[in-house]
Write a protein that binds this DNA or RNA. Structure first.
Lengths: 203, 203
DNA sequence: TAATTATGTGTGACAAAGTCACAGACGGCG
DNA sequence: CGCCGTCTGTGACTTTGTCACACATAATTA
């Protein structure tokens, strides 16, 4: 990738939990994540949250894209989920790279396209799907190699834009059907095929 | 705008109601709208719809952006709301313009940024806001110069990702408070300030 | 180890929103 | 006028969200 050369001075390291940006702020440059993971989310007045997307190693943060291009302010909050290394690409440099560096341009465009697709999926999910379907989808997406989902019910709720109690009840429905095993801070997926079947429904 | 020159042969005219693209299709080129309006929306299995955004005169359709850049298939449906003239910019031409035509590039980037901002607003709206707030917001957005909203309750429901019956009930609540006057296919906004106050709530 | 605290989970009761079925009401139009 | 398609209203019920609080588990400290 032409963007990140070894002598680039714009590398910043931040600790897990750091708030990188929050609604209303201005931003200084285009952000590219070198390691770690950032979650970008919205918070309502009543405290309920919904996670818009995550920016992982190699990804570029499109929240900053909007800020830079249209002089918009941040509309969401970004927080480091673990220790993170990011590269800040100043605006002039960004403009130069877009024109001169085909690989960089392709990466940006590809990220934009992917984020659009995901946003449409997210809107479809929250606007048109039931909690049952949303929960099944997020369990599959967060599952590790051992079919475990390491997340509290609170975290799952913010992933699907619902409330913790609702997640608790739906998980117990799944457990009663033998689809999952509920543990503290962890869920084991047992009947993967059945969960996938639920996730494929559109409602 | 450098993109549209007068001898461009890629102008297409379509009638109101025409389906321009639907989920699963491939697309041939980047779409720019010269006149008319296209609505881009998602439909669930149970028939409920949500409108993602509209593409109006001068706008570019970013649904096609994703298709072109990442070889994705369309994930939403696009339908002409009135008679529409669109320009199709083939992929090679698009790539050439992005590099060589600063104004074109700025327009594309600006559209991308604006769409992102709107998507985040939409997600916040459907995931974290009540029907009361969402309905107030859409009434204000669709209002014409005479404070009239020309839309059936069915249309309003798909704008806010809810159901017609729910819109009917909420409108009657608004009417009982003297905020609006309900007519067939039309709603007159009476107490604009009060509606705006509701719209400003986050929940 | 036992007590304390913080965090995570379960649940009843109620409110808000979505679904289903159906009844009217209104606006063309023959 | 009467017919028909579209739009709107409403009761009954289900699902989801909210609030209050009880209880369980893990981490911390005495």
């Amino acid at each position: 990738m032409g963007a990140a050369n070894s002598e680039n001075p714009h590398i910043i390291r931040v600790k897990a939990g750091t708030v990188l940006f929050s609604p209303g702020q201005e931003c200084q440059g285009f952000v590219k994540v070198h390691s770690g993971r950032i979650k970008v989310f919205l918070t309502a007045e009543n405290g309920r949250e919904i996670i818009l997307y995550r920016v992982e190693r190699g990804d570029i943060c499109l929240q900053t894209f909007g800020c830079l291009v249209n002089q918009q302010l941040y509309s969401a909050e970004g927080r480091a989920e673990n220790d993170v290394e990011i590269e800040i690409i100043p605006r002039p440099e960004f403009n130069r790279l877009i024109v001169s560096d085909t690989a960089f341009r392709d990466q940006v465009f590809s990220a934009v396209a992917a984020r659009f697709k995901y946003f449409e999926f997210l809107i479809e999910t929250v606007a048109l799907s039931s909690v049952e379907v949303r929960l099944a989808r997020i369990l599959l997406r967060l599952m590790d190699d051992n079919k475990n989902v390491h997340a509290t019910q609170e975290m799952l709720a913010s992933e699907i834009g619902s409330a913790r109690e609702v997640v608790s009840r739906q998980l117990n429905v799944f457990a009663a059907k033998g689809l999952v095993k509920i543990m503290r801070g962890k869920i084991l997926l047992i009947a993967l095929e059945k969960i996938e079947k639920i996730a494929k429904q559109s409602v």
